[in-house]
Protein backbone atom coordinates (compact mmCIF):
# COMPACT_ATOMS: atom_id res chain seq x y z
CA UNK A 1 0.00 0.00 0.00
CA UNK A 2 2.89 2.29 -0.67
CA UNK A 3 1.28 3.75 -3.75
CA UNK A 4 -0.58 6.97 -3.26
CA UNK A 5 -4.10 6.20 -2.09
CA UNK A 6 -6.86 7.15 -4.45
CA UNK A 7 -8.65 10.31 -3.43
CA UNK A 8 -11.70 9.54 -1.37
CA UNK A 9 -15.01 11.24 -1.86
CA UNK A 10 -17.66 10.82 0.79
CA UNK A 11 -21.04 11.53 -0.72
CA UNK A 12 -24.24 12.67 0.93
CA UNK A 13 -25.56 9.15 0.37
CA UNK A 14 -22.56 7.75 2.22
CA UNK A 15 -23.18 10.08 5.14
CA UNK A 16 -26.84 9.11 5.17
CA UNK A 17 -25.89 5.44 5.32
CA UNK A 18 -23.28 6.02 8.05
CA UNK A 19 -25.71 8.12 10.06
CA UNK A 20 -28.14 5.20 9.85
CA UNK A 21 -25.52 2.81 11.22
CA UNK A 22 -24.63 5.33 13.93
CA UNK A 23 -28.32 6.00 14.51
CA UNK A 24 -28.16 9.77 14.35
CA UNK A 25 -30.89 11.71 12.58
CA UNK A 26 -29.40 14.42 10.37
CA UNK A 27 -30.98 17.21 8.36
CA UNK A 28 -30.21 17.37 4.63
CA UNK A 29 -28.08 20.47 5.33
CA UNK A 30 -26.09 18.65 8.01
CA UNK A 31 -25.60 15.72 5.67
CA UNK A 32 -24.24 17.91 2.87
CA UNK A 33 -22.01 19.80 5.25
CA UNK A 34 -20.65 16.60 6.80
CA UNK A 35 -20.02 15.04 3.41
CA UNK A 36 -17.66 17.87 2.55
CA UNK A 37 -15.95 17.91 5.94
CA UNK A 38 -15.50 14.17 6.09
CA UNK A 39 -14.07 14.08 2.60
CA UNK A 40 -11.32 16.47 3.60
CA UNK A 41 -10.70 14.75 6.94
CA UNK A 42 -10.57 11.29 5.39
CA UNK A 43 -8.33 12.63 2.68
CA UNK A 44 -5.93 13.77 5.40
CA UNK A 45 -6.00 10.68 7.58
CA UNK A 46 -5.80 8.28 4.65
CA UNK A 47 -2.05 8.84 4.65
CA UNK A 48 -1.73 6.15 7.35
CA UNK A 49 -1.82 3.77 4.40
CA UNK A 50 1.52 5.04 3.16
CA UNK A 51 3.45 3.26 5.91
CA UNK A 52 1.07 0.45 6.83
CA UNK A 53 2.95 -2.26 4.99
CA UNK A 54 1.92 -5.89 5.49
CA UNK A 55 4.99 -6.67 7.60
CA UNK A 56 3.90 -4.26 10.33
CA UNK A 57 1.71 -5.87 12.99
CA UNK A 58 -1.29 -3.97 14.34
CA UNK A 59 -1.30 -2.71 17.92
CA UNK A 60 -4.64 -2.39 19.67
CA UNK A 61 -3.44 -1.84 23.23
CA UNK A 62 -0.71 0.58 24.26
CA UNK A 63 0.56 -1.74 26.99
CA UNK A 64 0.72 -5.41 26.07
CA UNK A 65 -0.94 -7.40 28.85
CA UNK A 66 -2.62 -10.80 28.55
CA UNK A 67 -4.90 -12.99 30.64
CA UNK A 68 -6.36 -10.30 32.83
CA UNK A 69 -9.15 -12.27 34.46
CA UNK A 70 -11.51 -11.99 37.37
CA UNK A 71 -12.33 -14.81 39.82
CA UNK A 72 -15.88 -16.11 39.51
CA UNK A 73 -17.01 -14.57 42.78
CA UNK A 74 -20.26 -12.62 43.04
CA UNK A 75 -19.87 -8.96 43.92
CA UNK A 76 -22.04 -5.91 44.27
CA UNK A 77 -25.03 -5.33 42.04
CA UNK A 78 -27.08 -2.22 41.53
CA UNK A 79 -30.48 -2.10 43.17
CA UNK A 80 -33.46 -2.01 40.84
CA UNK A 81 -33.96 1.60 41.93
CA UNK A 82 -30.36 2.45 40.95
CA UNK A 83 -30.72 0.63 37.65
CA UNK A 84 -33.81 2.64 36.79
CA UNK A 85 -32.66 5.92 38.35
CA UNK A 86 -31.78 7.50 35.02
CA UNK A 87 -34.54 5.90 32.97
CA UNK A 88 -36.43 8.22 30.63
CA UNK A 89 -39.39 5.87 31.10
CA UNK A 90 -39.91 2.75 33.19
CA UNK A 91 -42.70 0.40 34.15
CA UNK A 92 -42.94 -2.73 36.31
CA UNK A 93 -39.27 -2.59 37.25
CA UNK A 94 -38.22 -2.41 33.65
CA UNK A 95 -37.22 0.20 31.11
CA UNK A 96 -39.97 1.16 28.73
CA UNK A 97 -39.14 1.88 25.11
CA UNK A 98 -41.38 2.83 22.22
CA UNK A 99 -42.37 0.19 19.70
CA UNK A 100 -39.47 -1.66 18.13
CA UNK A 101 -39.43 -1.66 14.37
CA UNK A 102 -39.11 -5.03 12.76
CA UNK A 103 -38.10 -8.30 14.28
CA UNK A 104 -36.50 -9.90 17.24
CA UNK A 105 -32.74 -10.07 16.91
Amino acid sequence: MTDAPEPVVITAADVQHLAGLARIALSPEEIDHLAGELTSIVDSVARVREVATPDVPATSHPVALVNVLRPDVPGAVLTQEQVLSGAPDASEGRFRVPAILGEEQ
Binding site: S91, E92, R96, V97, A99
Partner: peptide
Protein backbone atom coordinates in the same frame (compact mmCIF):
# COMPACT_ATOMS: atom_id res chain seq x y z
CA UNK B 1 -49.90 -3.51 23.98
CA UNK B 2 -51.14 -5.04 20.77
CA UNK B 3 -52.80 -8.42 20.85
CA UNK B 4 -50.22 -11.09 20.27
CA UNK B 5 -47.54 -10.38 22.86
CA UNK B 6 -45.22 -10.40 19.91
CA UNK B 7 -43.13 -7.57 18.70
CA UNK B 8 -45.38 -6.80 15.77
CA UNK B 9 -48.18 -4.52 16.77
CA UNK B 10 -46.84 -3.86 20.27
CA UNK B 11 -47.18 -0.30 21.57
CA UNK B 12 -44.02 -0.48 23.60
CA UNK B 13 -41.53 -2.91 25.02
CA UNK B 14 -40.11 -3.40 28.49
CA UNK B 15 -36.45 -4.21 29.01
CA UNK B 16 -34.95 -6.30 31.79
CA UNK B 17 -31.14 -6.54 31.84
Amino acid sequence: GGTTGRIQGADSSLVDY
